[in-house]
Simulated assay, not measured.
Amino acid sequence: MNFHWRIQGQDYDLTQRGMVMGIVNVTPDSFSDGGRYLDTGRAVEHALTLVAEGADILDIGGESTRPGADPVDEAEELKRVLPVIRAVRSETKTLISIDTMKANVARAALEAGADIINDVTGLRGDPMMCRVAAETEVGLVVMHMLGTPRTMQQQAVYEDVVAEVQTYFEERLHILAEQGIAPERIVLDPGFGFAKTLEHNISLMQALPLLAVQGRPVLVGVSRKTLISRLLESDDVNDRDWPTVALTSYSRELGARIVRVHQVKANMEALRMTEAILGPKE
């Protein structure tokens, strides 16, 4: 099966070579690096470092979506992300993703130079988000989540988590197509850690080949997440980086095409090594 992602009218072939999405949190409260890159200058410096390490995409966000996180108002989110996007765009042609649930933030970010909308609500949280997406040719990340970041962990109840995520993806692709959004522009994110228990996360990881619904590429975002600390029985965030690398390699072997990570270089190397071993017969 061939995997392509259409972004701004250009097709990116992910069949043999996947993408690394580097995380740039312009927030005071993200679970792993909250506050470290809230300053615009430091955020831009970090983003360019990720590019130098091999990032294919920079995912810039101004609102934490960690479990229990409080929402951020639109004006504050814009204040955080727009200067960073503008500055990064002036320095590099690397793809930029805006990590937001708000249509107005997405629109402003696209005008500032972003190429992708990464919406943890799957374009459901803001009724205007579909219109923003339909009026552009940007790439889209459609994620699975129940509830909101503040309430999601109380809603992690499934009869069959794999089947329900599959059904969700089928429904979203159908609805978005009716809104004028071509499936070729969409990649699917199972939402590891978003309204999922440890057991749900493991089941979804094992079932990755089944989640490429309608042949759409799958994005995996497990970097430094709590599921790793649960398995390692360690609360130290620094203990989560090498397990993230292991999961990058494993998820690529199972068919993931994009990984969203904090540390780019090590995960990029793991991705490339795994792809070399898989070879063209995959």
Rank of each mutant, 00 (worst) to 15 (best):
191 G>E: 02
207 A>L: 02
99 D>C: 08
157 V>E: 12
227 L>P: 04
225 K>V: 09
188 L>A: 00
165 V>K: 10
99 D>R: 08
191 G>D: 09
131 R>K: 14
98 I>T: 05
208 L>C: 04
143 M>G: 08
130 C>K: 15
156 A>T: 06
225 K>T: 01
92 T>Q: 14
195 A>G: 11
107 R>K: 11
220 V>M: 09
168 Y>L: 03
152 M>C: 02
205 M>H: 10
114 A>D: 00
209 P>Q: 03
126 D>C: 12
207 A>Q: 01
142 V>G: 09
201 N>Q: 07
99 D>M: 11
158 Y>N: 09
200 H>Q: 01
170 E>V: 11
182 A>R: 13
93 K>C: 09
210 L>Q: 15
93 K>L: 13
219 L>M: 14
150 R>N: 10
178 E>A: 12
187 V>Y: 07
198 L>M: 10
179 Q>R: 14
210 L>R: 14
186 I>T: 07
201 N>H: 03
165 V>W: 07
195 A>Y: 04
177 A>K: 13
148 T>N: 07
179 Q>N: 13
156 A>R: 08
153 Q>G: 02
123 L>N: 02
101 M>S: 14
162 V>M: 01
113 G>L: 06
120 V>G: 00
89 R>L: 07
113 G>Y: 02
156 A>C: 08
92 T>S: 15
139 G>P: 04
146 L>V: 06
165 V>P: 05
188 L>G: 03
189 D>Y: 03
219 L>N: 04
176 L>F: 02
173 L>P: 04
201 N>S: 10
195 A>Q: 06
177 A>D: 11
186 I>R: 13
204 L>G: 03
114 A>G: 01
196 K>P: 04
119 D>C: 11
183 P>L: 12
126 D>L: 10
131 R>C: 02
95 L>I: 11
156 A>M: 09
91 E>Q: 15
111 E>Y: 03
102 K>V: 00
125 G>E: 12
124 R>I: 04
93 K>Q: 15
210 L>Y: 10
222 V>W: 06
214 Q>F: 06
135 E>L: 09
208 L>N: 00
175 I>E: 15
137 E>V: 00
166 Q>K: 15
108 A>D: 11
169 F>S: 01
208 L>D: 01
109 A>C: 08
228 I>T: 04
145 M>F: 11
205 M>W: 10
143 M>D: 01
164 E>L: 05
